[in-house]
Design a protein around this nucleic acid. Structure first.
Lengths: 212, 212
DNA sequence: ACACGTCGGGACGCAACCGTACCGTCGTTG
DNA sequence: CAACGACGGTACGGTTGCGTCCCGACGTGT
């Protein structure tokens, strides 16, 4: 390999970032429009206003393209949350999830890819990495802190808690596609908190409320 | 139209039920294998061991085929439930849903079609008819009876209740694809019941910092 | 026994897409 | 300033699937 002796690409021989950006945007739109199953490279190229070669020079195949872009888009989303109370954490988490799923692109792409993950190991692995792992981490932290505060029983199952936290919101936004109001979110916070095992009603702190 | 004067088809000129059945089965398998997006009539015909014509004689297009068969398969599933208690109703409903989603075919087909419904009005309408409407009906009845028994507050929002009931189980089975144990279901029944506003757990005192 | 008429099967034309090879273009580097 | 070399775009063969048409086969009703 004489790669060391060749000079680095420069000038017109370097990838133009604007075109890469256009491909990314077109892919997301196309993914939302037709889904992963019907996704075609040619359609992405048409929508982006570039040639197929421009895509194949950057990614080797359809899965590569989708995985890289989706992973990048889903990375660094949810914030670190520590409001001091279980209900505060839940409210913040729900706001973040709701905001993410309000994007029409996300609300169409995510269910589609989750369904595709059931039959495509590569997609499954990537989604588990960027979505599930992240949710488990955040949910696990949320539960752990709540247990430490004494808001939840010590034997709370983190996985079950995540189901209870994420399930209802995901169902409403991504499946049933019903509107989401502030009062609904408030009620959901209370329902989930109580369902997890927290004391009912107004957050009367039992003792020291400041734990950080 | 002289259809009245023509005699009815008979003998070899009548649809053979065995072939119709083979097509149905092949469609479900193919749908689970490649999803609605990539579904092809030819693949269904190959898998069923019949000719394309056999399919086109029965259904006019791909959407017709999928909609008719899926609607039929999803029809008459969930039982009428009235166990006398909210927790009993929930346990029974969860058992039914879990049983339905245990079928690998269903657990792959349903999320796929739900995702496809976001962009295909025909599928959306059909699914709302056979799934959502049914769930809303059952969930609504469950809530109504619980309210009448005094187990739930009178102002319980049926839609929100359905999110809380169906969401966690659907998430675990269809999205996260984690295993489902009896103890998990028991805990889920209790969590959902309490989350909906029912009195906590076994008639212990609400002090219950120790919950097992 | 015969005619009826739909059956399932194979073949065809058409369209879309994949992945690649080739072409002229263009900016940087020596 | 000239050569380098990857750039974006077009064209191409191969593959797959759609929807339709024609064919012989076959079982019932007259």
């Amino acid at each position: 390999m004489t790669t060391e002796k060749r000079r680095a690409p420069a000038g017109a021989a370097v990838l133009r970032g604007e075109i890469t950006t256009a491909i990314r945007r077109a892919l997301m739109q196309e993914l939302a429009a037709v889904g992963y199953g019907r996704l075609s490279i040619e359609a992405v190229a048409r929508r982006a206003g570039v040639s197929k070669t421009a895509i194949y020079r950057r990614w080797s195949s359809k899965v590569d393209l989708v995985l890289e872009i989706v992973a990048a888009a889903a990375h660094g989303k949810l914030p670190v949350l520590d409001t001091g109370t279980l209900r505060g954490d839940l409210a913040l988490l729900f706001q973040a999830v709701a905001h993410a799923l309000r994007h029409p692109l996300a609300s169409q792409i995510i269910p589609d890819l989750l369904a595709e993950a059931a039959r495509n190991p590569s997609i499954d692995a990537t989604l588990r990495q960027v979505l599930h792992a992240r949710q488990q981490e955040i949910g696990g932290r949320l539960v752990t802190r709540a247990v430490q505060r004494g808001e939840l029983p010590a034997d709370t199952d983190p996985d079950a808690a995540i189901d209870l936290i994420v399930g209802p919101l995901y169902w409403r936004l991504a499946i049933a596609r019903l509107p989401l109001t502030d009062s609904y979110l408030d009620n959901l916070v209370e329902s989930v908190a109580v369902g997890l095992g927290a004391d009912t009603a107004v957050p009367r702190q039992r003792d020291s409320s400041v734990v950080s």
